[in-house]
Design a protein around this nucleic acid. Structure first.
Lengths: 195, 195
DNA sequence: CTCTTTCGCATACGAACTGTATGTGAGTTG
DNA sequence: CAACTCACATACAGTTCGTATGCGAAAGAG
C-alpha cells in the first residue's frame, strides 16, 4: 500500500515548506502573507495551520531545513582540507560565504533569532552551531587549540563569522570586503591556536 | 517665550520614546501594540504617527537612544583603564555585560537588525560600532594591534562580543557562562595583537 | 486686543492579517 | 460496503497598522 494518504500529505508539506522558504526570504517573516504563501503552493491556510501549528512553527521548520543544509555544507568544506586548523578556517569561510545568500541571511540570521529566540535553544538544535562545536572540541582534544571552553569558543567563532557575513553583505563592495573579513577572521582565530 | 509649544512637544516625544522602549523590550517589536503603547504614554497613535512616521521610525528612534547610551558606557569603561590593549578588552566586556540587559538584547541585537537591516546602515550610524572602530583604529595606529582592516576587525570584535552575550543570556547558568565568554574573548582577541 | 494662520494631536475609517471553529470529501478500516 | 478518520477548505471574529480628516490651542500679523 505505502499509504496513499501519507504520500500526498508529505508532498504537500514539502510544497508548503518551499513556498514559505521563498516567501520568508523575499518579504521577511513579518511581511510574508500566509494567504499568498499557501496559494503559491496550491493550498490554503487550513493546510498550513494543520501541519505547522502557527506562523512561528512554519518558520521553525524552514529554519531547521536551511540550518541543516548549512551544517552539511560546512562539514563538507572542512572535510576537503587536510590540516585540522585549516579545516576550522575553511568551515568559517564556508559560513561566511553561505551567509552572503540573502535567503540564509534573512531567515537564519535575522528573523530566526528575532522570532524564535537564541539559536542555541532552537528546536532544530542548530546543526550549524553543533558542527562548529564538534570541530572546536576536536581541536582542543588534539591540542591544536588552546584549552578554552568549547561552548564559548564555538559560539564566539560562529558569531564572529556570521556577523562578518552580515557586514560583507551590507558593504558597498562585497568583492573587497569579503577577503578582508576572511583575513581578519583568520588572524583573530589565531589567538585560540596552541603555541 | 522659550516656545511653550515646542516644549510640550518635546516632552510628549520623550514620553512616547520611553513608552515605546518599555513596550518593545517586553513584547518585542512585532508584539508591541501602538494603541497600548501610546495610551501608556497618555497620548494616542495620532501623536506617534505625527512624530515618528510609522512603527519602524519609532523603533529607529528607540534604537538610536539605546545605542547611544551603550556607546557612552563603553567609552567610559575603556577610559577607566590605563593600558590601551586592556581598554579594548574592557570595552568588549562592557558590551557583553550591557547585552545581558533584556532591553538591550531584544531591541538592539534582535529586533533592530531584523527590522531596520544591518547596523552599519542604521540612521543612528550605530554609535556603538563606531566606538569600537575608533578604538581599533587607535590600536592599529599605535602598533598595538596588527595591521588589519579596521572596519573588518571592529565588526568581528563587536560581533563576537554581542553574540557571546546572546549565548550567555540564553545559558542556564549565566554566572558560569559569563567568565568563560570573557576568557575566550580575551584569548581570541589576542590573535589580533601585535607580537 | 483681535483676527488669522499654523500645527500638534485626536478621532474615524478602511484594509489586511492571524488564528480558530466548523464543514467536507477522499482515503482507510473492519 | 458501511462507518470512520483526518487532511484540508471555508467562514468568521478579533486585532492591528496606516491614512484621512477634524479640532483646538499656541503663535504671528495688523
Amino acid at each position: 500500500m505505502a499509504g496513499r494518504r501519507a504520500e500526498t500529505t508529505e508532498a504537500n508539506r514539502a510544497r508548503l515548506l518551499a513556498a514559505a522558504r521563498a516567501a520568508f526570504a523575499v518579504h521577511g517573516f513579518a511581511g510574508a502573507s500566509m494567504d499568498e504563501l499557501t496559494a503559491a503552493a496550491g493550498l490554503t491556510r487550513g493546510a498550513l495551520y494543520h501541519g505547522f501549528g502557527d506562523k512561528k512553527g512554519l518558520l521553525a521548520a524552514v529554519v531547521a531545513q536551511v540550518d541543516g543544509e548549512m551544517a552539511a555544507r560546512a562539514r563538507a568544506a572542512a572535510a576537503a582540507v587536510g590540516d585540522d586548523w585549516e579545516a576550522l578556517l575553511a568551515e568559517a569561510a564556508a559560513y561566511i560565504e553561505m551567509a552572503l545568500d540573502p535567503e540564509v541571511r534573512r531567515i537564519v540570521l535575522l528573523d530566526g533569532p528575532a522570532v524564535l529566540g537564541d539559536p542555541s535553544r532552537w528546536p532544530s538544535q542548530n546543526a550549524c552551531l553543533a558542527e562548529t562545536r564538534d570541530t572546536v572540541a576536536r581541536l582542543v582534544a588534539a591540542g591544536t587549540m588552546r584549552a578554552v571552553d568549547v561552548e564559548a569558543a564555538a559560539r564566539l567563532l560562529s558569531g564572529a563569522a556570521l556577523n562578518a557575513a552580515l557586514w560583507v553583505a551590507a558593504s558597498d563592495d562585497q568583492a573587497v570586503a569579503l577577503p578582508r573579513a576572511l583575513d581578519a577572521f583568520a588572524l583573530m582565530a589565531e589567538g585560540l591556536r596552541a603555541r
